[in-house]
Simulated assay, not measured.
Amino acid sequence: MTSDLVSVRYLVDEVEAAVEFYTEHLGFTINTNAIPAFADVVRGNLRLLLSGPASSAGRPMPDGTKPGPGGWNRIHLIVDDIDAEVARLRAAGIRFRSDVVSGPGGRQIVFDDPAGNPVELFQPAAR
């Protein structure tokens, strides 16, 4: 393996809505656009694969189980000023799962993309 990119696949209900969300609100850029089935977006070393129901990743399993979005596993985006980012995203209509939580390593908050996949913003503690 030679790529410096780390890839994470998210199943989404609507690829176009997911691309718009990640590019407009979180600073990703489009790498591949095969809407409506698939697209991937990049931010730094993170490549986020957005797979819709028509993609190969969205096909039912042999037992009939259909893959779907959601859960608690999430991408983790480091920010310099979590309060400013939360205010900016709230002004854009983004709803959060909770308020900012503080811990020994820093501060974090979780929100969902349009399909219900969680995204975490994290501001490391000052060292």
Score class of each variant (00 low, 15 high):
Met1Phe: 09
Met1Cys: 05
Thr2Gly: 14
Ser3Ile: 12
Ser3Tyr: 14
Leu5Gln: 13
Leu5Phe: 13
Leu5Ser: 11
Leu5Ile: 12
Val6Ser: 14
Val6Ala: 14
Val8Met: 14
Arg9Asp: 03
Leu11Gly: 10
Leu11Phe: 11
Leu11Glu: 12
Val12Leu: 08
Asp13Trp: 04
Glu14Ser: 15
Val15His: 09
Val15Leu: 00
Val15Pro: 07
Ala18Gln: 07
Glu20Val: 11
Phe21Thr: 00
Tyr22Arg: 09
Tyr22His: 11
His25Ser: 08
Leu26Met: 05
Phe28Lys: 07
Thr29Ala: 14
Thr29Phe: 10
Thr29Trp: 03
Thr29His: 13
Ile30Phe: 00
Asn31Phe: 13
Thr32Phe: 03
Asn33Asp: 15
Asn33Cys: 09
Ala34Glu: 14
Ala34Arg: 11
Ile35Thr: 15
Pro36Leu: 05
Phe38Val: 01
Phe38Thr: 03
Ala39Val: 04
Ala39Gln: 04
Ala39Gly: 02
Asp40Trp: 00
Asp40Lys: 04
Val41Asp: 05
Val42Asp: 07
Val42Trp: 09
Val42Ala: 09
Arg43Asn: 10
Arg43His: 12
Gly44Asp: 12
Gly44Cys: 06
Leu46Ala: 06
Gly52Pro: 10
Ser55Gln: 02
Ser55Asp: 11
Ser55Asn: 04
Ser55Tyr: 01
Ser56Tyr: 12
Ala57Ile: 01
Gly58Tyr: 05
Arg59Phe: 01
Arg59Lys: 15
Pro60Asp: 10
Pro62Ile: 06
Pro62Gly: 09
Asp63Asn: 15
Gly64Asn: 10
Gly64Arg: 09
Gly64Phe: 10
Thr65Trp: 04
Lys66Phe: 00
Pro67Thr: 08
Pro69Glu: 11
Gly71Glu: 14
Trp72Asp: 14
Trp72Ile: 13
Trp72Val: 15
Asn73Ala: 15
Arg74Ile: 11
Arg74Trp: 09
Arg74Phe: 14
His76Leu: 13
Leu77Gln: 04
Ile78Tyr: 15
Val79Gly: 12
Val79His: 13
Asp80Cys: 00
Asp81His: 08
Asp83Arg: 11
Ala84Asn: 09
Ala84Phe: 03
Ala84Ile: 04
Ala84Pro: 02
Glu85Gln: 14
Glu85Gly: 08
Glu85Tyr: 08
Val86His: 06
Arg88Trp: 03
Ala91Glu: 11
Ala91Trp: 08
Ala92Met: 01
Ile94Gln: 03
Ile94Met: 03
Val101Ser: 07
Val101Asn: 07
Val101Ala: 00
Ser102Val: 02
Gly103Pro: 00
Pro104Cys: 00
Gly105Met: 12
Gly105Lys: 03
Gly105Ile: 02
Gly106Leu: 00
Gly106His: 10
Ile109Thr: 02
Val110Pro: 02
Val110Phe: 10
Val110Glu: 05
Phe111Thr: 01
Phe111Tyr: 12
Phe111Leu: 10
Asp112Asn: 13
Asp113Trp: 03
Gly116Asn: 03
Asn117Tyr: 06
Pro118His: 05
Val119Asp: 06
Glu120Gly: 04
Glu120Tyr: 01
Glu120Ala: 13
Gln123His: 07
Gln123Ser: 01
Pro124Ser: 04
Pro124Tyr: 02
Ala125Lys: 13
Ala125Ser: 12
Ala125Thr: 11
